[in-house]
Amino acid sequence: MEKPFLTVVVPCYNEEEVLSESVTQLTNIIKKLVMNDSISNNSQIMFVDDGSKDRTWELIKQYSESHEHVSGLKLSRNYGHQGALLAGLTAAHEHSDCVVSIDADLQDDVNAIIEFMEKYHEGFDVVYGVRDKRDTDTFFKRNSALTFYKIMSKLGVNMVPNHADYRLLSKRALTEFLRYKEENMFIRGIVPLLGFKSTKVYYNRNERFAGESKYPLKKMLLFAVDGITSFSVAPIRLLLVIGSITFLVGVVLGIYAIVQKIIGGVVPGWTSLIVSIWLLGGVQLIGMGVLGEYIGKIFRQVKERPRFTIEDNVFEMKCEKNKNNESLV
């Protein structure tokens, strides 16, 4: 039986401080899997440079020349984590029998990849890496994440709690995944939609090896908004409910004002007027913002612009070189 070609896709943005250790740890895992006859000796670790401003790409090229299992992909600019991950998965599709995605910061336990491959050989098309606990997170991050999962569940989005983008996809799962053409790709929500046989591998998350997190609070909030608006129209329906409640409150206040006028209990003042203006104005602005979010997604989608642009592809060159060497043999 032919051994599967595994590609480990690693999005990178300004990761020069951690890249050396990432190469070391991931290369050791690949070598163990090769020795165990679990994967092909041509398997690759593809570091995807997402428009880094430091020496990340320079280092990736150096490691690709000195390590047989290391290659890279350079994007023309910064497309964000999900864009870089999508670019890597797309590039890996043609040559790979299965792919594993993992971040470069080494917070996800690389040893779980060995168990990923065991599950793959058992016939699973999707293997989710799930955090066993969130002890390394701050109180705010831990509870905000749990709240997000609960909200998504209430909205009918089938997500895997405590799972980020550490997963394995088989060839056919990746093929089906790439058929989804959303401009705003929320990968964590799309993968469960594939419906293929899946399982979970639990692991303990580590502290970031070096450097700073590329997901500050602002990006986390934007990511959450993207996830919600990509999979549900519930926020628009919520606006309808808020608008209806506000209308009913207005009717009640109107009746109250008429009654006070009849009985002569009207006291001149501006409080009720100001409250009404701010209340209605706030509802309108919130409504415009939510609708704008959806319209903005439609606007970007109908343009059908490329979701990423590849500037340099060392991965493709390495794969072709390995194919030529095999044909000579």
Rank of each mutant, 00 (worst) to 15 (best):
E2Q: 14
L6Q: 03
C12S: 07
E15I: 04
T24N: 09
Q25Y: 10
I30M: 09
S38V: 02
S38D: 06
S38H: 03
N41V: 11
N41L: 15
N42W: 04
Q44I: 13
D50Q: 06
K53Y: 12
K53P: 11
T56W: 03
K61D: 00
Q62E: 15
Y63T: 10
K74V: 00
L75S: 01
S76F: 05
N78D: 11
H81L: 13
Q82G: 04
A84M: 05
A91D: 02
A91I: 08
H93C: 07
E94N: 10
C98P: 05
C98D: 00
V99L: 00
I102M: 01
D103P: 00
L106F: 03
N111Q: 12
I113K: 00
I113Y: 03
M117L: 12
G123H: 06
D125W: 06
V127D: 00
T136M: 06
T136C: 10
T136H: 09
S144R: 04
A145F: 02
T147R: 11
T147W: 03
T147E: 06
F148A: 15
Y149C: 06
M152Q: 07
M152V: 14
V157I: 15
V157N: 01
M159F: 10
P161V: 07
L168Q: 02
L168H: 09
L168D: 01
S170R: 07
S170I: 09
R172E: 11
L174A: 05
T175L: 11
E176L: 12
Y180N: 15
K181Y: 07
E182L: 06
E183C: 14
R188Q: 11
L193P: 04
F196G: 00
K200R: 04
E212D: 07
E212N: 07
L221H: 11
L222T: 15
L222W: 15
L222C: 14
F223V: 03
A224V: 06
S232E: 08
A234Q: 07
L240R: 04
V241W: 14
V241M: 10
I242S: 06
S244R: 05
S244A: 12
I245Q: 12
F247E: 14
F247Y: 11
L248D: 13
V249R: 15
G250L: 07
L253T: 07
G254D: 05
Y256T: 10
A257H: 12
A257C: 08
I258M: 11
V259Q: 15
K261M: 15
G265R: 09
P268Q: 13
W270Y: 14
W270Q: 13
W270T: 14
T271A: 11
S272A: 13
S272G: 10
L273R: 08
S276M: 07
L279A: 08
L280C: 10
G289V: 07
V290R: 00
Y294R: 00
K297E: 05
F299A: 09
F299H: 10
Q301W: 14
Q301T: 06
K303C: 12
E304K: 15
F308C: 06
T309D: 07
N313K: 09
N313H: 12
E316T: 14
K321D: 01
K321R: 11
K323Q: 09
N324Y: 11
L328Y: 10
